[in-house]
Design a protein around this nucleic acid. Structure first.
Lengths: 211, 211
DNA sequence: TTTCTTATGTACTCGTGAGTACGTTGCATA
DNA sequence: TATGCAACGTACTCACGAGTACATAAGAAA
């Protein structure tokens, strides 16, 4: 693992690049602490003082890195929605019929909803946001929803999915797979991946026994 | 529609029974206004001043009829959970195999989640409650969950439901059917009953086409 | 008519939490 | 060495909302 470059020891004197990297890391740390507080106690109930205390910093420092409380939330939500967008793009690139691709997407979707930032997307009721924040949030969510509908529609067309109402089906699937975000706490027992796979399996096969 | 009893005109002078009935009606009105405010803006964000204003009364009047804010919420939640319990009891009494009975229950379950009080149950995150309130709330919810699992298990046993993991299946179903509570706004378009029926249909049949 | 009770509003207290003004320290640059 | 800027913390302000003390008005009872 040695490189031809000079190996530096961990020095207390930071180079300009180090400073920038540290700044980024601090920003990330604040964001993570915030999203966890929001998920644990709800956006309204969680105070920035709490978030700051959990990092042993002061409230103004949060403002330095992320701006006001709504901006912090919007950034958290954006992270979660980015993950979902990636998952959707990946599913579209994937080979296989509509059902196969949808299944992959659904699993990722459920997993993301158990991640810190994904949970934040699911748990945030958009009425806590300002008018602009809400509009932005909804637009991004609509894109995810549309991607899911497109996958369902593709499956229905190629016959890999039963001829169901696309809108209602997507709504039902999203609802089922959003729910773990309200509850999942990474306790012992099943991992997020296992849980996601099992739930998707139930949804794909349905309750009625196969003829 | 005439009775042998005396027909009274609508008099401004109230009998003692009238007073009691009026008190009850006022209590109901406060409860309904409160649950709507909670659903619309979230428990924490909704203020009792708002609720009072929507009825053109003052805040102390709410305290007179329902006690403090948490008690108001608990009463709303109890209403919703009562509806769910009734639905569960009804489903258990019903004839037919496990899947039939479960289907009936699921439809009612979804409908209730689009009702004012049902929505409140779904939308309330129990971390806004005090320790005792939370324990009470969880115990009641557990009973509903158990009822759903029992119905699934009965269906699996009598063969009307495919052999799935009971716990995960109930969790998935509940998740899917809780979701409308987050969104449904009684707008134009589908009624709650139609929506519930369609969603349950998707869940029962699954996505994969029938062989 | 006087007194008690019920129903209600006015006007507070008090805590909490978002957001800010300003001071301080330390490194960087002129 | 002087000046500027980056990275904080202390100590506020200010608004809002839960909960309450007290006044009041109207009917019921005595």
């Amino acid at each position: 693992m040695t490189t031809p470059e000079q190996d530096f020891i961990d020095s207390p004197f930071r180079s300009p690049e180090d400073r920038l990297r540290e700044k980024d890391q601090k920003r990330e740390a604040v964001l993570l602490a915030a999203v966890r507080a929001f998920n644990a106690r709800g956006f309204q109930a969680a105070s920035l003082d709490e978030v700051a205390a959990s990092l042993r910093i002061s409230k103004p420092t949060i403002y330095r890195y992320l701006g006001n409380k709504e901006q912090v939330l919007l950034e958290c939500i954006s992270r979660g929605l980015d993950l979902l967008r990636e998952a959707a793009a990946e599913a579209e690139r994937e080979p296989g019929n509509g059902l196969t691709r949808l299944t992959h997407f659904l699993r990722r979707y459920a997993e993301i909803n158990m991640d810190d930032f994904g949970r934040c997307v699911v748990r945030t009721d958009d009425n806590v946001l300002s008018e602009e924040g809400r509009a932005h949030f909804r637009a991004l969510k609509r894109r995810i929803d549309q991607a899911m509908r497109d996958l369902v529609a593709a499956g229905v067309e190629d016959g890999s999915i039963a001829p169901l109402d696309v809108r209602m089906t997507a709504f039902t699937l999203a609802g089922a797979l959003n729910w773990p975000g309200q509850w999942y706490a990474a306790q012992g027992g099943q991992s997020a991946e296992e849980l996601a796979a099992t739930m998707v399996d139930v949804l794909v096969r349905g309750l009625a026994p196969r003829g």
